[in-house]
Nucleic acid binder design. Structure first.
Lengths: 245, 245
DNA sequence: CGACTACTTGACAAGGATCAAAGTTGGTGG
DNA sequence: CCACCAACTTTGATCCTTGTCAAGTAGTCG
């Protein structure tokens, strides 16, 4: 079992630079009403967060719900020796911070410069109380997150390294498809370490698995941040069950 | 990388004996009104399910929300080669099947003879539409499930075998505490295989880890279904971070 | 008492982790 | 525009935890 290492200790420090609420970027711009198509978000202000800054950390009082307008954020939890599990990558259009706990239960860190629309929790709850359709949408959104979390658990608990990585591509591919972009071109706004921590692997394993998939012709890598999927059918088979790669 | 084995194929068959809705026990008894303290559940009927029978399987139309009155149920997902991940053990008092998907996303199997109170989804949704406090409670319940799922993910993704098992005991211990029973006496209504599939381990590893903890004096085992926790403080340390056992 | 199921234990193999080092990439300043 | 530096990634060698296979033990139910 892994034990404390200097790097690990360092990574904790990076994860929680001031150990508290304060690392939000202060720049807050009023959003012109009617700017967003979704009614709940019209009045939200916009916050900008630089790469690697934290939006919030575990234990902070929950103040807002955020919607990623551009950029990317990861939600993660850490063990006290620094091992990190990334729970979710929140990309453009994703909402962070639903959930009814009074304090945040995860850390949220920007992977790149990110713009977020912010909705105060109090506003959201008030809307939910006055309008059951809002409450029900909240319930549905949370429901989707729960399904995703359980799928993630299945992946990390039962799949081997290759299967996990392929699943990861599959998730991003599906996401592209839903948004009308090319499902075979995967942009990776996160580092290999982030991918490793998302999949419950180590960076070396992730790197080797990338290489293996590339050598086998399943993927092509232009820049490290872009993966082209080849032979999607076969990839699908790799992910679904009997992978013997 | 696990591959298909005869056992595996068999276990799928057991998991989905008829591949569909039909393995519910038909015995349904009308519950006398006012029997439960919680208003939402007063009108629910009671269903009895024998050990190993399925309450529902993945893909079934979602018809009811269930509350475990006695016995135990596990929720699990399977890969198509039979690998199984148990998502949750639902024990007395727990509710199953919240979540807004039109079909079930997990399989639910009784670990022992179980009595469940059943509430039709339609009734629940209607109540939620008419009463925002119901909708909000739904939202909070789902929220708790999400927190638990993420904690579980952290455990399976980052912890070693010993840490996972200790965490498992910790969860059950905490649960006992909340319900006023002895936090140091853990009743295990599930088999070792179930525990393994919950923790993302194999049965042999679970068994060996039990033995190791017993030899080290952290636990005592009377009957296989009962574990006594010793040295809870030290156990806590094992679970939280730097376990080098 | 035997068949069955669940659990334990041992020997061995393998997937992934760890340690170490070299190769890339991107940003900064001369 | 290029050189340098830091951070990130890839690759190799080796170790260790957990998985696999196999055998044996302990309860249970007919």
């Amino acid at each position: 079992m892994p034990r404390k290492s200097p790097q690990r200790a360092l990574s904790i420090k990076i994860a929680k630079p001031n150990g508290g609420v304060a690392q939000l970027q202060p720049i807050t711009v009023r959003c012109p009403s009617g700017w967003s198509v979704e009614s709940d978000w019209v009045d939200g202000s916009v916050r900008r967060v630089d790469a690697k800054r934290h939006l919030f950390v575990e234990g902070d009082a929950k103040t807002h719900v955020y919607k990623v307008m551009s950029g990317a954020v990861c939600l993660y939890k850490v063990l006290n020796d620094g091992r990190r599990q990334i729970i979710e990558f929140a990309l453009e259009g994703d909402v962070i911070g639903l959930g009814s706990t009074p304090t945040e239960t995860c850390n949220a860190q920007a992977l790149a410069a990110t713009r977020l629309k912010c909705l105060p929790i109090a506003v959201m709850l008030k809307a939910a109380e006055q309008d059951t359709s809002v409450a029900l949408r909240l319930y549905k959104a949370l429901s989707r997150e729960l399904v995703a979390a359980r799928e993630h658990l299945l992946c990390v608990g039962q799949r081997g390294a290759t299967e996990r990585l392929v699943m990861f591509f599959a998730i991003l591919s599906r996401r592209n498809e839903e948004r009308g972009s090319d499902p075979n071109i995967i942009k990776l706004p996160m580092t290999r370490t982030d991918i490793a921590d998302f999949l419950g692997l180590k960076i070396e394993t992730v790197s080797r698995t990338f290489t293996k998939l590339r050598r086998q012709g399943f993927i092509e890598i232009d820049q490290i941040t872009t993966v082209h999927l080849r032979n999607t059918g076969e990839l699908q088979r790799l992910a679904e069950g009997g992978a013997r790669v």
